[in-house]
Simulated assay, not measured.
Amino acid sequence: MSFTWSLASSLATTEQTRIQSTETSTLNTNITTLVTEILTTPSDIYDPRLTRPFAIICLFIGSIGNSLSFIVFTQKQLRTHSTFRYLAYLSIVDLIVIYLGLGHLILRDYFHLDIRERSLFLCKFHTFLTYATTHLSSWILTIVSIDRAIACTVIRLNKRFCRPKSADRIFVAMCIVIALINSHILFFMGSKQTVVRSISNNVSLHQQVIVCTHNTSEVYFHFFEKRYSIIDLFSYVLIPFLIMTVCAGIIAYRLFFSLSKTQLTNASKKKTRKGTRRAKQISYMLLILNLVFVILLAPIVVGQVFQELNQEHHYRLYNSITLVLSYSNHALNFVLYGIASPQFRLTLRQLLGLGNTNTIQRRFQTFGFFTSTGL
């Protein structure tokens, strides 16, 4: 009886020890799995069911559209005008924007590869380029509106401002200013942190990882979340939209009222009437472009201002929709700015070898009178 009790007690103790050992091993395995998932799983602030197909389609369309636009706007008959020079720059900048943003999204969602976490340099540089190029895109559109407004109102300033060389200088100046505004990202964004990974019992692995976030210090965290978000809101959307709207009003007044009151000869009136009709259509298009611009871009910046700090994952659907809208603006700009331009269509047809060459040249001469005042 005593022997049987001792044997039963020994077996129970052995079984309990085995269960505890199994639970400890399972716990260590779960910890290792959890840490591994934290290190390899991308950010969940977007819904991949929406962003994955969109990223592929938008990158494909944007690549073709912006590349085609750049080729068209750099043709001899167009690149001599400041407006089309700006639009050539816009095509390149928008191309960079979609590759930086959508390319990063595709690598992260499809291949679980976040290039910002490969090194601290890539974290800083990629984030900096993303902000700088999106701001630059908005301000190129703004300068296009200013260029048009000056071209059809201030004749003396038109000779100095609305020239290809002036466009090149203004573009370089914008690049420098925007780079300075976003330069803080190169200094304070991202950090290296040590993560402890449990491999087996009493064995741990210390691994350094790149955490690409603005939460590197309390001061920079509050600056980036509040003050810089407001700066981003004004510089990326509100100020450009305000300037575009004012310029559209100036162009509309000049074309709808000022030209109609000008005393012209009958021959000149007939020539101007045809061009003015086209210019009016362009002015309407400019207002539509401004509205499309603010509708597509405002939500993402507003979300940055009003979302709770570090709670972006609670707004996955909203963040996904705003991402789709914002990158649609950069990918489809060629549709709104290129297809609406008679010169763009004629040059494209010429490049593709469509239509009669003499007819195309005559149409270029017809549209040439209004090249500096509108697209």
Results as ranks from 00 to 15, higher is better:
L186I: 03
N202W: 03
Q207D: 02
I210R: 11
V219A: 08
F187P: 06
V211M: 13
H214S: 09
Q207W: 01
V219K: 05
S204H: 11
G190H: 01
R197W: 00
V203T: 10
V209D: 00
H222P: 07
S198H: 02
S200R: 04
H206E: 04
N201P: 02
F221S: 14
I210Y: 11
S204M: 13
F224C: 15
M189W: 13
N182W: 01
F224I: 07
T213L: 06
S204E: 13
E218I: 12
L205N: 10
V195S: 00
H214M: 04
E225T: 11
S191C: 12
S198L: 08
Q207F: 02
H206F: 11
E225Q: 13
V203I: 12
R197F: 01
I185A: 00
S198Q: 09
Q207E: 09
H206D: 06
F187S: 15
Y220E: 05
Q208Y: 04
E218V: 11
H184K: 12
M189K: 07
T194W: 01
H184D: 02
V196R: 12
Q193F: 05
F224S: 14
Q208L: 05
Y220F: 15
Q193C: 02
V203H: 05
T213S: 15
S200K: 04
E218H: 10
F188Q: 04
N201H: 09
I199M: 04
I210G: 07
Q208H: 11
G190E: 00
Q193A: 07
I185Q: 00
F221L: 13
V195G: 02
H184N: 10
S204Y: 14
R197P: 00
R197K: 09
V209I: 14
N182C: 14
T216K: 09
K192W: 01
S183H: 07
N215T: 10
I210H: 06
I199K: 03
N201R: 06
T213M: 08
I210D: 03
H214V: 03
F224M: 15
N182E: 00
V211S: 14
F223C: 14
V209Q: 07
N182D: 00
T194I: 06
H206R: 11
V196K: 11
V219D: 05
F188K: 12
F188M: 09
N201S: 12
H184F: 02
T194D: 01
V211A: 06
S191K: 15
M189P: 05
H206Q: 11
K192I: 01
S191L: 10
T216I: 08
F223H: 07
T194G: 01
N182H: 09
V219G: 03
S204P: 08
R197S: 04
V196I: 14
N182V: 03
V211T: 06
V203Y: 02
S198E: 05
N215K: 14
V196W: 01
L205I: 10
F187M: 15
I185D: 00
S191R: 15
H214I: 06
Q193W: 07
N202S: 13
M189T: 04
Q193D: 10
L205Y: 01
L205C: 04
E225L: 03
F221V: 12
V195A: 00
Q207H: 07
S217W: 07
K192R: 07
N215E: 10
N215D: 14
V195P: 00
S191Q: 14
N215Y: 12
L186Y: 05
Q207K: 09
H222I: 13
V195T: 02
N215S: 13
V219L: 07
N215C: 06
S217F: 08
T213D: 11
M189L: 08
